[in-house]
Design a protein around this nucleic acid. Structure first.
Length: 346
DNA sequence: AACACGGGGTG
DNA sequence: CACCCAGTGTT
């Protein structure tokens, strides 16, 4: 029995029931694939259901505000996915007259859709013979064929894509692609896979050569930078505060936060006073201020550790663009901020 | 080619 | 703590 048939047989027995497997609607397939980029099924599933429920068609998504889409995306991370989703929905509705791209080449033109996602949608929704290569596929192929080429090197990316293209079952591309990914997720797991129950245990090169725990090979690890964030939580007697949209390039673009002052180190109250935050907000008359968290809250992202202090600042009045504290939760904000809002309670 | 981009889960 | 996750866009 050949590789793809064996995989498909395994899949027919072991596959999970997932809502995006109950449809061929390209819009729903697209939604699920974007949500699942760098995201585990367990984490993405409730977001998928929320998006399908709130935006049942691409037209609903296209006419929504970016803020409402980011609000529904809140907590999922990699927020450019949500912004690109909106951009592409408008492109489909406005430029393509609502006709969803129906092949790999045209799908690739959508913002936020790269080689993997274009292949996934083309195969799953339209049964196009386009091989997917995601983290699961890299792992399964590198182990089964015993390939130690780094999966994130240029040659590795090219070679694995070529190999995947030779293996795909051309009669059942949709099923094959989902089968190999599901196999990687459930059987050929990153850590401690149970190879004794694996259907490929007799032909797997990694198992034969005891390389299961070192494959796939990946270049370099992420280096983490440390940053120090001071959030200014203004409160006036109208129960209003300042909440700003992040327009800068880096993390959390277009999400909302309390006014932020970044420092070179963790500040004491005295140092914070010396820093004289009032310089940043000349027009605001400060009555009193205090530190909410004595110990820094360390918010860990994959490439940054954010050491955070929340300064509670009582003020007499605030500028016109202040918003009611009660309405804070209507805005999309980073988990770090929404957690604070919930715990502080105001 | 290297890096930035989130947050949750696992061993 | 290190690594992984149905990757993509930018530099």
């Amino acid at each position: 029995m050949d590789f793809s048939t064996k995989l498909i047989n395994w899949y027919s027995v072991n596959k999970r029931e997932l809502p995006w497997r109950e449809t061929r609607n390209p819009y729903y397939i697209w939604l699920s694939e974007i949500i699942l980029q760098q995201t585990q099924v367990k984490q993405g599933l409730p977001y998928y259901n929320a998006f399908v429920s709130k935006f049942p068609t691409v037209f609903d998504l296209a006419k929504a505000s970016e803020t409402s889409i980011l609000k529904l995306w809140q907590g999922l991370g990699y927020y450019s996915r949500a912004r690109n989703l909106h951009h592409s929905a408008k492109y489909i509705v406005d430029t393509l007259d609502g006709k969803f791209p129906d092949n790999y080449k045209d799908l690739l033109k959508l913002k936020g859709v790269g080689d993997y996602t274009a292949s996934a949608i083309a195969s799953i929704a339209y049964n196009e013979v386009a091989a997917v290569v995601d983290g699961n596929v890299y792992r399964v192929l590198s182990r089964y064929f015993g390939i130690d080429t780094p999966i994130n090197s240029s040659t590795g990316i090219k070679d694995f894509k070529t190999l995947a293209s030779t293996l795909i079952n051309t009669n059942q591309p949709a099923t094959y692609n989902q089968a190999i990914m599901e196999f990687g997720a459930i059987q050929c797991k990153p850590k401690n896979p149970d190879c004794t129950v694996c259907p490929f245990q007799d032909s797997c090169m990694a198992r034969k050569n005891q390389m299961v725990d070192v494959l796939p090979v990946k270049l370099k690890k992420t280096k983490v930078t440390v940053k120090y964030f001071n959030f200014l939580v203004f409160i006036d007697h109208h129960k209003k505060t300042l909440f700003e949209k992040r327009t800068t390039k880096g993390i959390w673009q277009h999400l909302y936060q309390f006014p932020l002052i970044e420092s070179k180190k963790s500040l004491t109250a005295e140092e914070f006073q010396l820093l004289n935050f009032k310089e940043h907000y000349l027009e605001i008359e400060v009555l009193d201020y205090s530190l909410y968290n004595e110990v820094d809250i360390v918010h860990k992202l994959s490439h940054q550790h954010l050491h955070t202090k929340f300064w509670i600042i009582d003020v007499k009045s605030l500028p016109k663009d202040a918003i009611l504290i009660k309405s804070l939760t209507k805005y999309p904000s980073p988990v770090l901020i929404s957690d604070f809002i919930e715990q502080f309670g105001f």
